[in-house]
Design a protein around this nucleic acid. Structure first.
Lengths: 214, 214
DNA sequence: ACGCACTATTTTGTATACAAAGCTAAATGT
DNA sequence: ACATTTAGCTTTGTATACAAAATAGTGCGT
């Protein structure tokens, strides 16, 4: 995603933690201990602190009342608010994407969808989760606006562990992958309203499932 | 804004730097030297680094190619993209706010506007800039959705120094404060489309002025 | 006088040390 | 037996030290 600079230590740590949280390996409410992480990554507390600090600045982690940082944990009400915001942003992304759709963007979306399908068929949960993220990311990128993509991605990360919980069985994966098809068609229709509404209903569905699982 | 916790050292530093950047005191492209800041705030480099790291995570600062961090500097194209994203978010905020408007929210918006007017009359540029931010913040808060407010605020901060440049004369302040009136009326109309479109044209105007000044 | 290389200095990244603030728990007093 | 305080242990925040990277500068050779 970023430029040609090789990943520095804190970038690496940040990326690993982000991934583990979005996959649901580190669960909401879990405490992250600086010393333990330092030992795990074989570095001192300093770069760990920097990574944790950045993650809290992004809202992925939240500082505890008195001490420690925790994986962000949201109540149903808070989740509803976050999803409302995501609704707006994702709908806007879908609309803009539908207007600007390039061949490259189309291809990348289809490619990501293919990955979703194959991961779903294999029943590989972690792979599906990553492919699903890549799919939505491809849509964001299709807007041609990195800043829209950035905030959409940010929300996606925050809700990662909660959305992850709704994928329990192989059928869940298959159903999700199928629903992508309709979404793609709506976006590829190149009609703003169709694309935007398509994304809204996709997000609503996602929210319903997420609430059930949490 | 936050809870009852007293501002820690890094929070204080972060807040001061954020303010100085949004006011335009620290200009885009300026380099921030860790050692100098450490001396200035009378602390060691450690908390400075943490503050800078958090600010880069928020996109307010950007890391230089090889070394140093700089106040984020955007080309006209990039500014256009950021403003496009702001358009979408602010429009959504205005729409939601118009639907949920509470007496408290109304009052706070009006109060912020009063501050804008008086700062404009006094010709106090810094005070107007702060009041203007408070005004928009009040609208975000009126959505009742802290997450919408959060991203809207984030974009506002990023574009702060660029928008700040368009306020050169006392007349600029007065004109801006006046245009708030129409925006308020549109939002208070409690009609979604009116509110949303009102905000869109306000933002478009803001963008035009910003481009002229940059 | 110009270019190149090598050195010195600044600056960043990481580690370690230390002090302050919480938490745990045990011991003492009632 | 229960509450309260205090002692000890964890954990965090900040400072300092040190090593690696990068820039600037200096001198040397041609």
């Amino acid at each position: 995603m970023s430029s040609t600079t090789k990943p520095s230590t804190v970038q690496r740590i940040e990326a690993v933690l982000t991934d583990e949280i979005s996959i649901g390996e580190l669960k909401p409410g879990m405490r992250l201990d600086e010393a333990k992480l330092a030992e795990r990554f074989g570095v001192s507390r300093t770069p760990i602190r920097e990574a944790l600090s950045r993650l809290t600045a992004q809202g992925i982690l939240i500082p505890g009342e008195k001490r420690g940082v925790f994986v962000a944990e949201y109540s149903r009400e808070e989740l509803a608010q976050i999803f409302e915001a995501m609704h707006e942003i994702e709908a806007a992304c879908a609309r803009i994407a539908s207007q600007r759709l390039s061949l490259l963007a189309r291809t990348e979306i289809e490619f990501a969808q293919a990955e979703c399908i194959s991961a779903a068929k294999a029943g590989d949960r972690a792979a599906y989760l990553r492919a699903n993220e890549a799919f939505h990311l491809a849509i964001y990128k299709a807007t041609g606006n990195p800043y829209m993509a950035e905030i959409a991605t940010e929300f996606r990360r925050r809700t990662g562990p909660f959305r992850a919980k709704k994928f329990a069985t192989k059928e869940d994966l298959a159903r999700s992958a199928e629903s992508h098809r309709e979404l793609i068609d709506n976006i590829f229709s190149e009609d703003s309203a169709t694309a935007s509404n398509g994304m809204r209903s996709h997000m609503t569905e996602s929210f319903v499932e997420t609430l059930k699982a949490n």
